[in-house]
Amino acid sequence: MEQESLTADEIALYDRQIRLWGMGTQLRLRSAKVLVINLSAVGTEVVKNLVLGGLNSLEILDSSKVKEEDFSAQFFLPNDDSIVGDLKLLHALPQIQELNNRVTITSNTRPLNENEGSYFKKFDLVIATELSSKSEILWLNGITRESNIPLYVSGLHGMFGYIINDLIRHESEAEREIGNQPRVVGTSISGNKTIIGVQYNKLTNKELVKVEDVYSQLDNVLSSKKVSSQLNKRQMRRLSASLPLIFTLFDWQRPTDIEADLDNSKLKAAAINMCQHLNIPSTVITDEYVELVCKQAFTEFSPTAAILGGCLAQDVIQFLSKKESPINNCLILDGIRSEMPIYSL
């Protein structure tokens, strides 16, 4: 049985974060069981952050063998060429366990699609990185939906990246400063976020605000036409090509030859097509971005992995804490412009 309070040792170790999110959140973390699929560059960052944070247990599912290009940004691998071809988890797991021995770290090296739906039921939350195709994303989302498990999906394309999530439904409650106008129950904050409770606290002169997040299934996210309705004129004018280009790549076959660039004109045509699909002007597709993405598609890069892995792990902690409203439901990282818009699709 779980202890109901933190030990003095835990409080000393987690001191600086308990001062931020409180004992309650730390206890919730300590009881959370999380699955991370694929120890990619983003996966590596997410695992590092969550293990440091102090989960109950973390299982990593990855059947891949070490490739030479994994020595770009996957820092749990030892610096040793002779391990190329070995199971990646065999070499990475000991380094991960060293981060925090309070977290139970386990591995699963069976290929993803060979795991039955019931396998996923033992986790409170699933994070998948660098899934191989859109159909794999939708297959996994089908399982998590059926078992009522929140799901995050993330990936990198060099300086670009994404987090899409289907957390099904989430309620959060936090004390907020009183704004210019009193908050009203039923107000939609942004797309799928709604205020469902407001309680005024006389003592602190603050409002206890309850927010409900309702999530779309990922096939709806990936085929959404809602982007344009969420942007004002200025935002629409400033919209970068990163969203349609990243969405285009969900339909792209991962290249087997990592040296080769994508076909420029094919990508451009597909991206313009995607713009029509997303109901945004095709003029956002610039040659500069098409050229960048042709080179950077499906590549891993440490700084953007750190940013994306930081956001994703932070959002998982927010989700588990039930204090903050999480990302809902599509975050795009544009490392050229240093932007991270979130769309509610």
């Binding site: 931020l20 590092k48 952050n49 944070g53 700084p303 953007t304 750190a306 892995g309 930081g310």
Partner: peptide
């Protein structure tokens, strides 16, 4: 101070 914020900022 938390790991995630430092990771994002260092990135």
């Amino acid at each position: 101070a938390i790991a995630t914020t430092n990771a994002i900022i260092s990135g």
